[in-house]
Amino acid sequence: MGIKFSLLVVAALIAVVFLGVKVVGMYYVFGVIIPYLAILTFVGGFVYRIMNWARSPVPFVIPTTAGQQYSFPWIKQNKLDNPSTTAGVIGRMALEVLLFRSLFRNSKVELRDGPKLTYQWEKWLWLAGLLFHWSFLIIFIRHLRFFTEPVPGFVHLADTLDGILQVGLPGIYLTDGLILATVTYLFIRRVVIPQMKYISLPADYFPLFLILALATSGILMRYFIRVDLLKVKELAMGLASFHPTVPEGIGVMFFIHFFLVCTLFAYFPFSKLMHLGGVFLSPTRNMPNDSRMVRHVNPWDYPVKVHTYEEYEDHFREKMIEAGLPVEKE
């Protein structure tokens, strides 16, 4: 159900841009207007979502993370998994964002005959997820060559490392193969594992298909249905410098690729893809386990009117002394 629907949407998107460009000739719409709308939606939506999250209070410290917490000096603290300082939190966050550390702990539980409960290492999801995200990032960085003039050194560096095999012309990129393989894995995983299939929604399939179509169209464009890259760069530079132009004669393959990117960007803030920003706001990742050193005040606490013991004693001191009760201040 979710699969068919998502596939249909992606197919419809491709059909729309193909007809729009090839038949109606709406080059300016697909080359300038939609890209600008998409980036505006992305930035606006992203800021809105983050500010919305920033307005949600965190009622409690959430210290239940793996690893030994800060304790007696003779008990070794796990400083990265259960940090009590800001530096430790930054370290944990960096490991999480760059290496997906908590996904690395993924395990598979199975009930076998016996009955026996077994736990197994399950690293494939971690590996595929990590390779997928890094490939995406490197492809993203490499694409900056279309949007910058002169092209900065780190873009060339990414290009050189990614094309290090120097196989064929135009040379193949490692990330091209990796992104196709890993997205395919992430899709197959959702389909063959019954529990995964049960909880998968169109919102899970759609981004996968969209990215798969995006990568496929890019790869087709690079190796098979070539387009004039100089004109692509002229268009991209026009967008980046706010002097938009649509040079004539860019193949429709480019517009398909570009429209899919625009869809991805516009869809981003309203989807699960917002985990890009959300991971930094995850309480189990960004709160130091210092609940025994710093008092965390629940923002939801009702301002209760309290009467402390000092105030009580001030109030009743004479009477207490008269009655022979001990007082703290004479």
Binding site: F147, T148, E234, S241, H243
Partner: peptide
Amino acid sequence: LITFPMWYNMGKAAPP
């Protein structure tokens, strides 16, 4: 970071 191309080029278009 995400608007890098917009300020890196400082509004200069670059014709081929």
